[in-house]
Design a protein around this nucleic acid. Structure first.
Ligand SMILES: [Mn+2]
Ligand SMILES: [Mn+2]
Ligand SMILES: [Zn+2]
Ligand SMILES: [Zn+2]
Lengths: 176, 176
DNA sequence: AAGGAAAATGAAATTCATTTTCAATTAGAA
DNA sequence: TTCTAATTGAAAATGAATTTCATTTTCCTT
């Protein structure tokens, strides 16, 4: 598991955030196999091949459900399947991303994480510097305000990135 | 100069953004020397030393005024001062950051840039995928809304990151 | 003005996540 | 089954960021 040392810029102080401890939101088995069917169809349609490795990797990725690095997913898979290489895990996550089944995220610790999420779907993140938990939100008012600000500049937004770093309820209560 | 290839995640399409072309906002000479005095006082107070290299690097950094990589600042300085090394430019930018005279920024191209800005001062960015220009904004309503969202999660925000990627007025008009 | 300790410098080496290479293997169409 | 293109995985390459270390410089103390 990745222990993340997040180097905060402003006050020259080091905090660390641990591996994502958010209660998992693993897709239910039905959803997982549904996704897998979609992917299989997609691969076939594009002339890609379905392989044992891809199946295992995708299954594990969808089961896990949240912001995971290629490295961590590899380790998780490697426990049971010693023969699957890191490179294949890495490439499968890239493939999923390009195919619209996953989204790449780069948070402040500068490690690439993936989450099973169709490309169109959007949300932003609250990241706890204490325990590393990641909360997600979507706020219409926010999106509207963003558009309004952009408009004032004559700027047309294609994507945006919004992340809050701070302390979650538990960590705030604990550390004061 | 850094030509930045920004790999957008969603639609698997490559765009590139060129070196920051924003009209420069170099601090006026008076402000520059004022800052330099402040820094000198700071260094002395902390037991650091004032050196010819630091003076040159800081001067050039403050003159430049905007989001620049260590590499680019080095190249700029190296034209006139062949004997100043990259490492020293890098270390000076780090020092300025730790001292609160500069802020580190990591945009989507994953290169560390620095801007001369005191740590407390805050703004967000609009980044043009066409020409690489970077616009800055600050919006009170936005900050309040962020706080409101965080509050709903019992989350206490320490810092946040908000960046819009898209096309500026000129690029929008040009490319349609 | 020396002298000396601590800090700074810069070339080169290291780190570390990410990405690519390449030879061997495999999927799946014919 | 055969053939071809795709896939795999170990190892190498990449590239920005950071550290190392021998040398030089600053600046405080005699
Ligand atoms: Mn998410
Ligand atoms: Mn800025
Ligand atoms: Zn927490
Ligand atoms: Zn533009």
């Amino acid at each position: 598991m990745n222990f993340i040392f997040l180097d905060r810029t402003c006050p020259p102080r080091l905090t660390f955030i641990m591996e994502n401890r958010r209660r998992h939101k693993p897709a239910c088995p039905r959803k997982v196999s549904e996704k897998k069917e979609q992917l299989k169809a997609f691969l076939r349609q594009k002339g890609f091949k379905s392989t044992r490795q891809r199946d295992i990797i995708v299954t594990e990725f969808l089961k896990t459900g949240e912001h995971i690095t290629a490295e961590d997913l590899y380790r998780k898979i490697n426990r049971k399947n010693r023969e699957i290489g890191f490179t294949t895990v890495y490439r499968t996550l890239k493939l999923l991303t390009k195919s619209g089944f996953a989204t790449e995220r780069l948070f402040a610790d500068n490690l690439t994480r993936y989450e099973p999420l169709s490309a169109e779907d959007h949300h932003d993140h609250l990241i706890c510097l204490g325990c590393g938990s990641i909360m997600e939100f979507e706020n219409l008012k926010m999106e509207r305000l963003q558009k309004k600000i952009a408009d004032e500049f004559g700027f047309c937004i294609i994507t945006h990135k919004m992340e809050f770093y701070g302390y979650c309820r538990e960590c705030r209560d604990k550390c004061g």
